[in-house]
Amino acid sequence: MELFTLTACLMVIVVLLNNSPGHMQQNGDTFAKTTELVLACQAGDKQAFNRLVLLYQTRIYNLALNYVKTPEEAKDLAQDIFVTAYRSLPSLREATKFSAWLNQLTINHCRNRYRKLQRRGYFTSTSTDDIVVPALLSTDTPEGNLERDERISLVRTAIAALPEAEKEIIILRDLQDLSYEEISATLELPLGTVKSKLNRARHTLKNKIKHLLSTP
């Protein structure tokens, strides 16, 4: 009897793990699942939308985080993006293009919010020139972790200081790991333009933090 109970519990755990969004992201079945969820959502299934949010929330939240200053503002922005997505989802004709559609929606939303905040003088000038980065330490130590956190913070500051077009392409490629084709679809740019803009953006970023990069 106990063996049966144990087996049943294990089966339940396996089923739950197989159904968890994190697992879906890992096993490469995300695309099919996304399409299925989008279709369900378009049919009025609110739970399907919630699962879509769980699948994409990290990406969208992190994208938003690069456009505003604080996590609270990023959260608000990302939530607004999902609300807009929910409202606009019925107009999405091809469920298979949800990911690109959501990226595009996100970029547009972020641009609008960024410009709105910029007009209100929300962003002060961000410069990395006066920041001195300590010598790199091993990341195995607490000091090393602190050092890495500071470095990440500096990189984020440098990204935030990039011109809008360059910032977007850096975020999409180097932070979001989108392919050139995906970036091309999201920004509605030819592939060659994406490559050349990305190269220029990376050079700009490198130049902004060059004084930090030159430290040993």
Partner: peptide
């Protein structure tokens, strides 16, 4: 410098959204 800046970019890991996001 270019390679090093890309390496630094790779260190920027995604941040988990707040628990009450959904």
């Amino acid at each position: 410098y270019f390679k090093k800046s890309l390496a630094w970019l790779q260190e920027v890991q995604p941040v988990a959204p707040p628990a009450d996001f959904l």
